[in-house]
Amino acid sequence: MTAQRRRARVESAIVTMAAHKRILRSLGNGPTRRSLFGPVDREQLQREYRAALRRDLEDASRRWSFDFASEKPLEGGDFHWEGVSGVRVPLLYRACQEKQQKRPCEAHQPGQSAAGKENIPKTPERCAALPHEVEKTPEKSSELKRKQTNITDFYQAKKRLVATPRKSGQ
């Protein structure tokens, strides 16, 4: 019998829940907009962000035996790197500016963004906005950022020396 009563309670709870849901929808932008844990310490946040990126970069350098900061291969890792001329690399892997010139579709994007789909043009725009963004941020993070975008450039330059799969990085 207690199980039955429990079920009945759950059932009535579900009905109440549905009612709340309807009310919630009509509340609009009011109470959901709130700061939960007080003000954010912006400077510390920036410091932590830069430290986190630097750590990611160090991990990546170890994993790929490549110093992404100075863009030089490292000795003694699992990979041996050879340079490849940029012309031989598929268009997709070339630097951002080059890509923009050759792809006419990206030039049209800003005009289309007025069409009301506020989210859709965001991604292509970011590529164009990147140099501008880098200018705004303080020197250290801008350096990290620019180096990071170059990682893909070097995917093409690599030749895998060790055939055995590596367990690190997972």
């Binding site: 907009r33 709130r34 700061s35 946040l45 962000y49 986190a52 990126l53 963004e133 705004k136």
Partner: peptide
């Protein structure tokens, strides 16, 4: 929705950290 306690720039930066 955070009552502007964070900025879009910070959101984008931390997006990268979380992804990593």
């Amino acid at each position: 929705y955070t009552d502007n306690s964070i900025r879009p720039q910070e959101l984008l930066e931390w997006e990268l950290v979380v992804l990593g």
